[in-house]
Design a protein around this nucleic acid. Structure first.
Length: 565
RNA sequence: CGGGAUAUGGCCCAGUUUGGUAGGGCGCUUGGUUCGGGACCAAGAGGUCGCGGGUUCAAAUCCCGCUAUCCCGACCA
């Protein structure tokens, strides 16, 4: 490729609408252009890299016997009604109508569609397990698109679906895919964590997220430096912390006018947050439930929902609070509360604490757990925090964020049952498929790679994503040098390397800057070294190391370098 | 959806307080010089100042409404 012919709009200025490194660099280096919020065009260079991502994933999918297919993005409403997701998915689903006013949506994921296809095709256990995947554009109307292509509304995803005859067989399938995923992220030279994720109240048992190490990102998780336990914040468990706080006090009703929030009560009474008891009223499938956590903790609603096995869980509104606690918002408490009360493990150690009195403008102080509270159930309900104890080994865990690259999920029969997708087992009995689904965000792999590999000059591509192997830069416009460059270009190309020839009539500095920005791993520089010594300089992007060599040594050098790193 | 900010040539911005001929840098075109880390000189092309309304002799600038984009938060198989 002659650089003058490449559609490569490089920008010198910092793009004003980009904050994160990968977003800025992708725009500056001419990889992407924004079209609308969360919607991007991949320009030729970006698209070339995207294709590389795609091919690595495709290879590893094919290696485990998964078969590629291609489903539409424009989908009719009916299958979504069968599983209830037309409504459950909510505003995140892009909905539209055709000219006859029929409802359609743009697919955010394809469980319904794949199930529809398989149920009408596979009737026997003899055809299982079955692995089907596609690499296709997904649409999600995200509340807040962010970080360039990391959270966008249209994005390319590899989604794989598995169909098994039993849970045991699914376990094996899952393991196989899990290993393929590790291979994929290893091939991209990404630093990543494998994190336990929430599997939801219905169906699945196991779910994992593959999270790229990064300063930015939206996946919050904890990791134990001792045993390696890692879990998404939504799913993270923690060990009970045994702690002794103060002696019992005398239970007293105190006037706390207008003190509704933990912060206000804390300041008013001059006590620490950990001495307060937060009482939060939830409505779980129409039943009011008072949830107790310590003042400095927060309720993890997913844990709560899973524990209660509730289909619907939400915070009570103000009217419901008045109705059930007989006091306005801010004064709910367990003492005298008539409904079900469940508490977090940590409140067991509460002594001489403070809680709402179910009476406007009043709290109790001197509250002790054992003496004063009647709690129906105690379990782990709080949102894990930095330095909480590991549920496996008891060490202090660290909180981290990162970029979620992939998610694997055992679904079980959630979709097969609601859509009546059955096969006949070896006894001739009808059974629902045991399913799994597994996704990888392709754009995020590019963004995460850039987040992990860059310097002030630009992107430093890793092995499997580099858009080109080598760029040939004739430094001066000297005719002989230019011709030599062109000759070298043809020669190296003939050995199968992906080469760019810098043929633009611009200053040397700009040639170097551009090559560094787009991150080409090796620059072959023809200039004064060549004129004076007859040698060609090879400069490595990764560390700026310069190697001078004769022309005939170049191919061997490249062979060694490019294959190894 | 709450809070904050922005919108002026392809890109980055100044001009708005105090209304009076729309500016700079980068990029682009042409000619010349230059050529080892974002060169220089000269001449050019390119703008409904986000959109709609209002005030005024006169609006990028003042007033009202709307939209888009970004950031923080809430939300998120």
């Amino acid at each position: 490729m002659y650089l003058s012919k490449l559609f490569l709009p490089i920008i010198r200025e910092e793009p004003k609408d980009a904050e994160t490194i990968s977003h800025k660099l992708m725009i500056k280096a001419g990889l992407i252009r924004q079209i609308s919020s969360g919607i991007y065009t991949f320009l030729p260079l970006g698209f070339k890299i995207l294709k590389k991502v795609e091919n690595v994933i495709r290879e590893e999918m094919n290696n485990i016997g998964a078969q590629e297919l291609f489903m539409p993005a424009l989908l009719p409403r009916e299958p979504w009604d069968e599983t209830g997701r037309w409504d459950l998915y909510g505003d995140e689903l892009f909905k539209l109508k055709d000219r006859r006013e029929r409802d359609f949506c743009l697919g955010p994921t394809h469980e319904e569609i794949i199930t529809m296809i398989v149920k009408n095709t596979i009737k026997s256990y003899k055809n299982l397990p079955l692995l089907l995947y596609q690499i296709q554009t997904k649409y999600r109307d995200e509340i807040r698109p962010r970080f360039g292509i990391i959270r966008s509304r249209e994005f390319l995803m590899k989604d794989l679906y598995s169909f098994d005859e039993s849970w045991e067989s699914l376990d094996e399938t899952y393991k196989k895919i899990f290993e393929a995923y590790k291979k994929i992220f290893d091939r991209f030279d990404l630093k990543y964590y494998i994190v336990e994720a929430d599997s939801g109240a219905i169906g699945g048992k196991i779910s994992h997220e593959f999270v790229a190490e990064s300063e930015i990102g939206e996946c919050e998780f904890v990791i134990c430096p001792n045993c390696g336990y890692a879990a998404n914040i939504e799913a993270a468990k923690c060990k009970e912390i045994e702690e002794n706080i103060l002696d019992d006090g005398e239970l007293t009703l105190i006037h706390t006018p207008d003190m509704k929030k933990v912060e206000e009560v804390k300041n008013f009474l001059n006590v620490n947050e950990d001495r307060l008891l937060k009482s939060i009223l939830y409505i779980a499938d129409d039943e009011p439930i008072l949830v107790l956590v310590r003042g400095d903790d927060e309720v993890n609603e997913i844990k709560l929902k899973n524990y209660l096995k509730a289909k619907n869980l939400r915070l009570a509104d103000e009217n419901e609070i008045e109705k059930y606690t007989e006091a306005p918002l801010g004064f709910a408490g367990p003492i005298g509360f008539k409904g079900k009360i469940i508490g977090d493990l940590r409140i067991k150690y509460l002594k001489n604490g403070v809680c709402g009195a179910n009476k406007k403008d009043y709290h109790y102080k001197g509250v002790s757990f054992e003496r004063d509270l009647k709690v129906d159930e105690i379990t782990d309900l709080r949102k894990v925090k930095d330095k909480d104890l590991c549920p496996k080994c008891g060490e202090k865990m660290n909180m981290k964020i990162g970029i979620e690259l992939g998610h694997t999920f055992q679904l079980g029969t959630k979709y097969s049952e609601s859509m009546s997708a059955f096969f006949q087992d070896s006894n001739g009995e009808l059974k629902p498929f045991i399913m799994g689904c597994y996704g990888i965000g392709l754009g995020r792999i590019i963004a995460a790679t850039i987040e992990q590999n860059n310097d002030t000059k630009g992107i430093i591509w890793t092995k499997s994503l580099r858009p080109y192997d080598v760029i040939i830069i004739p430094v001066s416009v000297d005719d002989e040098i230019y011709k030599k460059g062109e000759e070298l270009y043809n020669k190296i190309k003939s050995f199968g390397y992906d080469v760019v020839f810098e043929d633009r009539d611009i200053s040397p500095g700009e040639k170097f800057k551009d090559a560094d920005l787009i991150g080409i791993p090796y620059k072959l520089i023809l200039g004064k070294t060549f004129i004076n010594e007859g040698l060609i300089e090879v400069k490595r992007r990764r560390d700026d190391k310069v190697f001078k060599m004769k022309e005939e040594e170049i191919i061997n050098f490249l062979k060694g370098e490019l294959n190894e790193s």
